[in-house]
């Protein structure tokens, strides 16, 4: 939504982030295909084999959380989330930079809080198992923990760009 033609060269850190986001998309894409296939198997099991695979539901909940949070972090990297650009677009350059600063800083803090608390939630939930699947409940919290970490990294990337942009504007 705020794609600005960054004339700046992509740094090594940017390329690292690009790599991370590609990897996230790959994992999430595979999860989507697996999700589709397991449900095909569920329907087949219930109607053809007359034996419902009881693990499909619980597994699908895990897969969707994985797809959602990996995909969402990529959205932060590429600025593709739904946002309201009405005010941003009508603001002068310096106000825009201020908006970006507040926005990316709050995302970085949020990512950090997200990572730490999801980690604790994971530990808290680790003691009991997800019924019918037999894996620890704590697994549910892992994708969101990853997402928190990735959001932190990506927003730092945006903050670095912001810094360079402001510096360039000041030099001019």
């Amino acid at each position: 939504m705020f794609e600005q033609a960054d004339a700046l060269k992509r740094s090594r850190y940017d390329r690292f982030l690009d790599y991370l986001s590609q990897l996230s998309l790959l994992v999430a894409g595979i999860a989507l295909v697996v999700l589709t296939l397991t449900f095909g198997w569920l329907v087949f099991g219930r109607y053809v084999l007359n034996s419902t695979p009881t693990w499909v539901e619980q597994l699908s909940l895990l897969l969707v959380v994985l797809i959602a949070f990996l995909g969402a972090s990529v959205g932060i990297h590429k600025n593709t989330h739904l946002g309201v650009s009405f005010f941003y677009d009508r603001s002068p350059f310096w106000l825009q930079q201020l908006f970006q600063l507040i926005s990316q800083l709050s995302l970085a803090i949020f990512g950090c809080v997200m990572m730490v608390n999801s980690y604790q939630l994971m530990l808290f939930k680790w003691g009991s198992d997800i019924p019918l699947l037999g894996v620890p409940e704590g697994i549910r919290a892992i994708p969101i923990m990853l997402c928190g970490g990735l959001v932190l990294l990506y927003s730092i990337g945006h903050l670095i760009h912001l810094f360079h942009r402001v510096k360039a504007a000041l030099m001019r």
Binding site: L25, A28, G29, L32, V33, V64, I67, A68, F69, L70, G71, A72, V74, G75, T80, H81, L82
Partner: peptide
């Protein structure tokens, strides 16, 4: 197919994180 999967992941995650 790959484009369809990637687009689906992007849209799904956008909607789902909003819900979350």
């Amino acid at each position: 197919f790959k484009t369809a999967v990637v687009n689906s992941v992007k849209t799904t995650s956008m909607v789902m994180v909003l819900i979350a």
